[in-house]
Design a protein around this nucleic acid. Structure first.
Lengths: 196, 196
DNA sequence: CGGGTGCTTGAGTTTGCTCAACGGGCGTGG
DNA sequence: CCACGCCCGTTGAGCAAACTCAAGCACCCG
């Protein structure tokens, strides 16, 4: 299955119909408060598994951040498979633990870092997570999988603050950007230092 | 094994020597940035499992928030046990997934809620998680498992801000407090509304 | 060429932080 | 027993970081 950027894959509150594997692209996981405040709570890069095992209701929404390819499988089938296949359960367990580590890393970032550090951390995350563009001897080129609104919702900031901090990083020569989305980081270590 | 409030149970960066079950009390999980900024990334209430399966190094510190009783078991023994005991692995998997849900809930809180909402959310969390004091028809009495510094580090605030927000909640009659730690919430719904 | 969307930039405001003083509870020592 | 100091929490005043509101720009598409 393929989905274009922006497609809503899972709606918060729905009953989970299927699980999926992310084959390519980036999926963002979101939560929204009653009054509309939104927060991106996770990003899934290929080849992550998508879906909450054992849940009876989705507690978050999922949306294609970029164009994505998914490999979907029905709920019942996967749960059956997991039950009779300890190695698979083990693999999923390890992913869950890794996601928990990442979530806690993100909690530190949200709780204790400044806006500048948050933006730097986000760029660093994307630079190191998404191979496609390529990383070589400290230089990274990649395409942002999120627009400014999503970045802001990921970092717990406003889009204006994100924009300003990106401009500052550009002015300092730590990142270079063409056309809003394509990023070059000449020296990852320099960026790393901005992460706090 | 017993440990008094404040005891350091696991040091960040150490090799994990043992796993444990929290039998009573509350354990706080913390992360610290190089410059000393600290963030509490999770609270474990009884009967949670403590320890990162499959990790070769602890990525966080653990400290007794209150007096705790732990049931420790050596690393190798538990891993062996898990390997030959799918139901146990399943149980741990479910806890990991639950912790992930909680971590994401917390991400929303840190990213998008005001100081007042954060403090209310914290009180609500403790009121509903810790049975001991007792919850009856919307009224809750309990003892805070964390001092002001830890609450601040949990919420991503300063202790002054936490203190001010608590004073405001007291002034509004939403919570009553004696002796700094003992809390009465006459109407949980009122508190719930403050959570955003 | 006009309108729309997404991003940037500026000006003023608000929220939460910093720094500082103060107060209560408690243990220690006179 | 009281005096003192310490720890922890509270409160106040001023400040800084990030938000809000508003204007303007670049790009895309019809």
């Amino acid at each position: 299955m393929r989905a274009g950027a922006g497609t809503e894959l899972v709606r918060d509150g729905d009953e989970p119909g299927a699980y999926a594997n992310v084959m390519s692209g980036v999926v963002k996981l979101t939560k929204t408060l009653e009054d509309g405040r939104r927060q991106v709570v996770g990003l899934q890069f290929a080849p992550d598994f998508l879906g909450r095992l054992y849940g009876t209701e989705n507690r978050l929404g999922a949306e294609a951040a970029s164009d994505v390819e998914l490999c979907r499988m029905p709920r019942a089938a996967l749960e059956k498979l997991v039950e009779n296949n300890p190695p698979l359960e083990n693999r999923l367990m390890r992913q869950a633990l890794r996601e928990l580590d990442e979530a806690r890393e993100w909690i530190v970032m949200l709780g204790r870092k400044s806006a500048a550090e948050k933006v730097a951390s986000f760029l660093y995350l994307v630079a190191t997570q998404s191979r496609p563009g390529g990383v070589q001897q400290g230089r990274a080129e990649f395409r942002l999988p999120l627009n400014r609104t999503d970045i802001a919702d990921f970092l717990g900031l406003t889009i204006e603050t994100v924009s300003r901090q990106l401009s500052l990083l550009k002015a300092e020569g730590i990142v270079e950007m063409d056309k809003l989305r394509d990023v070059v980081v000449p020296d990852l270590d320099l960026l790393r230092e901005k992460c706090g």
